[in-house]
Amino acid sequence: MPEWLIIGLLIVAKLGLIFMVLLTLAAYLVLAERKILGRMQLRPGPNRVGPFGLMQPLADVIKLLTKEDFIPARADKWLFILAPGLAAVTALLTFAVVPFGPPLTLFGHQVPLVVCDLNIGVLFFLGLSSLAVYGMTLGGWASNSKYSLMGAIRGLSQLISYELSMGLALVPVVMLARSFSLTDIVMAQADVPFALVNPLAFLIFLISAVAESKRIPFDLPEAENELVGGFHTEYSGMRFGLFFVGEYINLIILGSMLTVFFLGGWMGPFLPGVVWFSIKVLFVCFFFIWVRGTMPRLRYDQLMHFGWKILLPLSLLNVLLTGALLLWRQG
């Protein structure tokens, strides 16, 4: 086989594998969430479809695909159609910069286990996560419904507020690793993960990540008992499914980002890198589900107060302290 064909095939195989794993994982994360939440609330969770309910995601997909696709009257039709796709695509694209293992050698070629190791990877992640707001906002606005609009406005202000502290929590990481590339950031954690070097940044990023994922202590945009379903109230069938899948892919992305920035990425003893990476990501996802099972929802003003008056000054202070410490250590 010619050289370029092998390289091309390797790239296509890598992309296909990543898409398959991500989508399957997102589907099974839904099942895992329902099972774990069920156990936490002393009920079995879904267990009728297949052994242990393992076919439940498939059944859900068939249900969503065969449901009536509904567009509300006087909705902005094209934006309404476009929005769920936007939400899912921005979530999927972010995975392009996530390094999920050390470089692998296949057929005499070095295959880096990352789609694209950008030298501004951190900014790529922040950029896409700020664009991810559009899917939710446009969907909520285009539905022409009060509940959707309220949900979208809430989600918008929440995501903007917590994105700031999330970005600022990454500044110490970039300072410590001296690079914007995610691969370099993982390499810099060969000895000690940054979660131990800078626990404050880790904590701020963790809280902001939960807020960014719009999950329970921060799930104001879709608070069921006030807003019906929030920004996706008017969505049905697979369009709703796309929002849903996007949210779970986003969960995996945030888990991988936490792993890459603070938990040492694929680094770990004995086991191969990919396995370590998966264990860490799944553990973070489990933590997110755990939080959802145990925390009550914040009130809206509490959410804003916490984000702007506590988290943001704290992350600014952390940037200053880390910079001062690094300078002092340099002598």
Binding site: N119, I120, L123, F124, L126, G127, S130, L131, V133, Y134, T137, L138, W141, N144, L149, A152, I153, L156, S157, I160, E163
Partner: peptide, 30 residues
């Protein structure tokens, strides 16, 4: 200037236009 390109997307497309959307939605300029 890849860095400026990234900022253009993060700050202008990702933050400032989102704030515009926020204002439009708050004022209900339907």
């Amino acid at each position: 200037a890849p860095l400026v390109a990234a900022w253009e997307v993060i700050i202008y497309a990702g933050a400032i236009m989102v704030l515009f959307l926020f204002i439009i939605m708050m004022l209900e300029l339907s």
